[in-house]
């Protein structure tokens, strides 16, 4: 396949970026999207040009490091995949592909397509944990957890923190990310003692970092590579309402 790529290039956080057009040729449909960019980059190095910087690591869809906004969709045109799992067989010969970085105020660009997602870590640091220290915990089977509930918690916990929810949301809202973590811990008995504190602290941090407000468009749910459901957001809203109105925290 021969393709035309329009890629956002930006030297550093402060400089002004621009789109640059590249051509790649003879790409096999079995190639993954990131391997296609590898090929482009090898060509650029051959021409003594700066390769395009993009985040990537595990290349099997679990680390959440990669994330490109491809032709108007985070992680591209396939559903339920990360960018690294997107394959070129989803494109046609001669396609023009526009590749943009995640765009959101809390995700400043570091270089080219690389953005700084440490805002997510900051939200987790506000309460995305159970406050236990190492050792001194009860036996794993001490508290039975209904299977359904454990499974639901697992579904919420499968978030990979890639940021596609924020990237796809027209408001750059992080509600699905925060909702998934709040839900996971709210569903488990281990998370209950801190539930009221947690939801308030995490939401406050999310707001302070400059993420937008949720307007329930559910683009996040549609684009989440792990198909995390919007019911997580609903559960967080419920938790938040309870925390504000019923808890002492």
């Amino acid at each position: 396949m021969n393709l035309t790529l329009k890629i956002w290039r930006q030297d550093n956080a402060k400089s002004k970026g621009r789109f640059q057009t590249y051509k790649v040729t003879e790409i096999s449909p079995e190639t993954s999207f990131l391997e296609m960019l590898d090929i482009l980059n090898e060509g650029l190095v051959d021409k003594v040009e700066h390769p395009v910087c993009f985040d990537n690591d595990c290349r099997e869809g679990i680390c959440g490091m990669c994330g490109l906004y491809i032709n108007g969709r985070p992680h591209g045109c396939d559903d339920g995949v990360t960018t690294c799992q997107l394959h070129m067989r989803k494109f046609k010969d001669g396609d023009v592909i526009t590749i943009e970085p995640w765009r959101a105020r809390p995700f400043p660009i570091i270089r080219d397509l690389v953005v700084d997602r440490s805002a997510f870590d900051k939200i987790i640091q506000e309460g995305g944990y159970v406050s236990v220290t190492t050792g001194g915990v009860p036996d794993g089977n001490a508290i039975p957890i209904p299977k359904k509930q454990a499974d639901q918690a697992m579904d919420s916990a499968s978030c990979i923190g890639c940021g596609a929810c924020v990237a796809s949301c027209k408001n750059a809202s992080a509600m699905l990310f925060v909702g998934a973590k709040v839900s996971q811990l709210a569903l488990l008995p281990q998370g209950k003692p801190e539930a009221a504190l947690r939801v308030q602290a995490m939401v406050a941090k999310m707001d302070a970092l400059g993420f937008g407000n949720c307007t329930n468009t559910y683009a996040c749910e549609a684009e989440c590579p792990k198909e995390i459901k919007r019911s997580n957001i609903a559960r967080m809203n419920r938790e938040f309402l309870c925390a504000k109105t019923c808890s002492e925290e």
Binding site: K6, F19, Y69, N71, G72, R73, P74, C77, T98, E100, R103, A104, R105, P106, S168, K170, N171, A172, S173, G210, F211, G212, N213, T215, N216, T217, Y218, A219, A222, E223
Partner: peptide
């Protein structure tokens, strides 16, 4: 207020218009 805040959350817009599936008419509230 919410809308202005939401616009502020993405100071640089995407070049390609979003093609993500959304709830019917939810984008245009």
């Amino acid at each position: 207020v919410l809308t202005i805040e939401n616009w502020m959350a993405r100071p640089v817009r995407y070049k390609v218009v979003s093609k993500s599936k959304t709830h019917f008419m939810s984008r245009y509230m």
